[in-house]
């Protein structure tokens, strides 16, 4: 299912422009939406989920017009949404909450609904605590309840906003794998500011900054743009100075290895290395800040 967003604008009361003329085409499969905090990712997600109305522009989700009541209703029927901050009724237990969500998603048959709830509790490994009140759940457990509720109606479109925030490394990996498995023939829109989450799961991505889409393409495209611009510099501890960005620092004992992104001419001790998606992202963000490239 394809999503097409055209000339989308969102201006909040008070004049804050959260989205500025966004054009985006999202194909089936996993699609990453990357950007710093405040880039407009959540606003875009909330508009696609029908929570917010755009100020102007059009939204087409699988042939349904997101600007009409009829279209929004049709989109909601094939949507699974995991918000950044999941709301739950603290006094319901996990099973009851999922059952309630199932009812709101139009799963009328009680037996089928209960079976689906049990299946998803198993998928997210919460069967053992299914009868515990949600107010006793940890952040990670709530996240898992969140993904379970999003999947209840077997949605064709799954929108997940910062799903791995607050998860421990093991849970994060589990979650990423789960999302990848789910992608299949459905569209999974994954919003995050964690590059690694996208690198591990998505083939296509868009990068947003200040309410605009500044990159749209494949992860390979983004990585390729940085080819020849990623270097390793090893020093005895002194941080290298110059017109580049340090992506990571690795303490090697007596020396320190710096991974940097920038246009360097030949420099002693600098070894060119293969770029990663994170390097591509850093390069793009750097380009946005300083479009003119200077040479060290």
């Amino acid at each position: 299912m394809k999503i097409e967003v055209t000339h989308l604008n969102k201006v909040y009361r008070g004049g804050v422009q959260a989205l500025n003329n966004v054009d985006l085409t999202i194909p089936s499969g996993m699609y990453g939406l990357l950007g710093p905090n405040g880039a407009g990712k959540t606003t875009l997600m909330r508009i696609l989920a029908g929570i917010l109305r755009p100020t102007s522009g059009s939204i087409d989700v699988g042939g349904h017009d997101g600007n009409t009541e009829k279209g929004r209703t049709a989109i909601k029927q094939m949507l699974g949404y995991l918000p950044q901050d999941l709301g739950v009724y603290p006094d319901l237990n996990a099973r009851e909450f999922l059952d309630y969500v199932g009812i709101l998603k139009g799963m009328d048959d009680r037996k089928i609904r209960q079976k689906r709830v049990a299946e998803l509790l198993e998928v997210v490994s919460l069967t053992d605590v299914a009868n515990r009140k949600l107010k006793t759940f940890s952040g990670g457990m709530k996240r898992r309840i969140g993904i379970a509720q999003a999947l209840l109606n077997d949605p064709q479109l799954l929108i997940v906003d910062e799903p791995t925030a607050g998860l421990d490394p093991e849970e994060r990996i589990r979650f990423r794998n789960l999302l990848s498995d789910l992608a299949g023939d459905r569209t999974v829109l994954l919003s995050t500011h964690i590059v690694e989450d996208i690198a591990q799961t998505c083939r296509n991505l868009a990068i947003m900054k200040s309410g605009q889409v500044i990159f749209q393409g494949t992860t390979v495209d983004l990585t390729s743009e940085t080819r020849g611009k990623v270097w390793i510099i090893t020093t005895d501890g002194l941080k290298p100075q110059g017109n580049f960005t340090v992506v990571s620092t690795l303490n090697m004992g007596s020396t320190v290895q710096y991974r940097i992104v920038g246009e360097l001419s030949a420099r002693a001790g600098a070894i060119e290395t293969a770029p990663s998606l994170e390097d591509g992202y850093v390069w793009l963000m750097r380009e946005q800040r300083t479009p003119s490239v200077s040479v060290l």
Partner: peptide, 20 residues
């Protein structure tokens, strides 16, 4: 519903506001 933020989640579901 607003305090617990379930209203936002429920808005994304096909159950109508009037029914709820």
């Amino acid at each position: 519903d607003r305090r617990t933020k379930v209203d936002e989640l429920f808005t994304t579901m096909p159950g109508k506001l009037s029914t709820r």
